[in-house]
Design a protein around this nucleic acid. Structure first.
Length: 559
RNA sequence: UGGGGUGUAGCCAAGUGGCCUAAGGCACCGGGUUUUGAUCCCGGCAUUCCCAGGUUCGAAUCCUGGCACCCCAGCCA
């Protein structure tokens, strides 16, 4: 990574690490981990965690592992594993040879459980799921002990082994920690450690009939990997007591500690895996990488850079506050970067024919800068001819004085070409404007005003000669309300106009050779990216990543 | 009503008893430059830190008491 050298804002986790290091000269190498469950695609919320964990490790000269928390075979599969690896890599992070799976630890975890049983810290319960729920008590009432809580150690050992051997049906037995059924923290009321599942696991197949629960597997996996700082989201705060209990009651190779930060909430979208899955399965979007999706693969397909996502994660900060971020924040970060790095091109999305009556029947080549502030990015030739196309929006028959684009009798600059004045408006039988007639000033080649006269408007255009027809996909926010997930029927707020396919676009000839995933700024329109899947030079397909900031649109809407 | 958290501008967020009559970013509002109504530049934007008391020469920072919001009762993670 060559970017990310902006001054970093500190956060409380960074400070905890600094103080750990300051207070203990023998503090081990900092090791963090990113621990997704492979049960879906990664989204922008995961990016925050990835940047935090890998970023912290890098900053303190330590390591960050990629660990799949694959303890629930029914929800997980290798497609998800592969997509997650691809996404983390794309974000610019490297776990080197430290790719781990909780399922790699199943035997060790089993041995630890036997230890707990031997120390009378765990027991096999025969209560049904429903009974366990009843015995647990409520938020305000204590639970009560299971009748099996005082089973003999030897019997527990025997039963647990037989659970593993597949002798019992799912749901008939569980292994529970023996802690305190009256604890005000519900997680400490004899939590289930192991359950019987006869499903095939994506990595261990049908070898195991019992699977560890998250709370049990996670802390021990951390300890086995010598994780120093186990960073997770706020909803696990209540689980920390259990995390510590398990580690403290076993002889583990290391002593990790858990810290929690607030997860990301983005307005106008949803970030829960369940909802994202249903958007895909119910056909609201065209898959996990639909450019409207807040998934990493969606952002990538849309044309976002990984550095903009990293920068975004830095900018929003890490705290314990419940926050919602407006999507304009990530768009601003992206624009800042693309404005610097991207070459300019001309394209007309909604063309209006313009015939320049006093221009000869020839085609000439004009020179255009690839970046207005960076001459070192070079120039290119664009053809100009008697017939050109401009944006329909750039013409108004009865224009207010603040409208300084084209209108009858007014003069504008065709960028890099000539000054033109509209002389006539041609309409069809329905009264729609279908063509404009203009005159040009032959002395204004390149767009310069020969006598220094003020020309307020400069518009983009594409000449008929050499124009490339393209499909351009325009995207908008996926939901019409900022917090769709607050409503019970969140699907009702899905933005049906979130995707528009435009087949009328005309591009300047140089865009014919654009590569898949190549990004440009289309002058005055925004940043666009050749679609990484559907684009080809025979049938170009561009996605609009984000518009330019548009003060005029804001002003005209306000009136 | 039990437990765990959080409250600094429209949105994020520094700040941990005196260089704070509270950084920075986004948004917003002016003004300038401009062959993108873009970019860039300049200026504005919390006498106040959830509220109320208290301690102190001095409080966003300490104490007490409220209030609001978030999370937890899966054999999910």
């Amino acid at each position: 990574m060559q970017d990310d050298k902006q001054p970093v804002q500190t956060n409380f986790i960074r400070k905890i690490i600094e103080s750990d290091l300051d207070n203990n000269p023998n503090f081990p190498e900092i090791i963090t981990r990113f621990p997704p469950e492979p049960n879906g695609y990664l989204h922008i919320g995961h990016a925050k965690s990835i940047c935090l964990n890998f970023g912290l490790a890098k900053e303190f000269g330590g390591l960050c592992n990629l660990r799949f928390d694959d303890t629930n075979p029914e929800k997980e599969n290798t497609e998800y594993v592969e997509s997650i690896k691809q996404d983390v890599k794309w974000l610019g992070y490297d776990w080197e040879d430290r790719l781990y799976f909780a399922s790699d630890y199943f035997q060790k975890l089993y041995d630890f459980a036997v230890e707990l049983i031997k120390h009378d810290k765990a027991y096999v319960d025969g209560l049904s799921g429903e009974e366990i729920h009843e015995y647990r008590g409520t938020l305000t009432e204590p639970g009560k002990n299971s009748p099996w809580r005082n089973r003999e150690i030897q019997e527990n050992l025997d039963l647990f082994e037989r659970m593993r051997n597949g002798e019992f049906d799912e749901g008939s037995y569980v292994l529970r920690a023996k802690i305190d059924m009256r604890s005000p923290n519900i997680n400490m009321r004899d939590p289930v450690l192991y359950r019987i599942r006869k499903a095939a696991h994506h990595r261990t197949g049908d070898k195991w009939k019992i699977y560890p629960m998250y709370d049990y597997a996670h802390c021990l996996s951390d300890a086995l990997e010598y994780i120093t700082h186990s960073v997770c989201t706020l909803e696990f705060e209540d689980h920390r007591a259990l995390y510590d209990w398990i580690i403290d009651n076993l002889q583990t190779p290391s002593r990790p500690y858990q810290y929690e930060f607030a997860r990301l909430n983005l307005d106008y979208t949803v970030l829960s895996k369940r909802k994202l899955i249903s958007l895909v399965n119910e056909g609201f979007v065209n898959g996990w990488d639909d450019p409207r999706m807040p998934t990493i693969s969606g952002f990538r397909r849309r044309g976002f850079t990984s550095s903009s996502i990293r920068k975004f994660c830095e900018v929003i900060g890490v705290t314990k506050n419940d926050t919602r971020i407006d999507p304009v924040v990530i768009e601003t970060v992206l624009r800042d970067e693309l404005g610097e790095t991207t070459q300019r091109r001309m394209a007309v999305l909604d063309p209006l024919k313009v015939v320049i009556e006093n221009y000869p029947d020839t085609t000439e080549q004009l020179e255009a800068m690839n970046h207005p502030q960076k001459p070192e990015m070079g120039t290119r030739k664009i053809p100009f001819s008697k017939t050109v196309y401009i944006e329909k929006d750039d013409f108004m028959e009865d224009a207010p004085k603040k409208f300084f684009r084209l209108s009858p009798g007014r003069e504008v600059r065709l960028k890099y070409a000539y000054l033109i004045t509209c002389t006539d408006v041609i309409k069809n039988d329905q009264g729609e404007i279908i063509e404009l007639r203009c005159n040009y000033d032959p002395d204004s080649r390149g767009g310069n005003s020969p006598d220094g006269r003020k020309v307020k408007g400069t518009i983009h255009w594409v000449a008929e000669d050499g124009a490339v027809e393209a499909e351009v996909r325009l995207f908008d926010r996926m939901f019409t309300s900022a917090m769709p997930d607050k409503e019970e029927d969140w699907r009702a707020d899905f933005n049906d106009d979130s995707k528009q396919i435009n087949n009328t676009s005309l591009l300047e000839p140089s865009l014919k050779t654009a590569d898949k995933a190549e990004r440009f700024q289309f002058e005055r329109l925004g940043y666009f990216c050749a679609d990484s899947v559907d684009h080809s030079s025979e049938s170009p397909v561009f996605n609009r990543i984000v518009t330019l900031r548009d003060t005029w649109a804001k002003v005209s809407k306000a009136r």
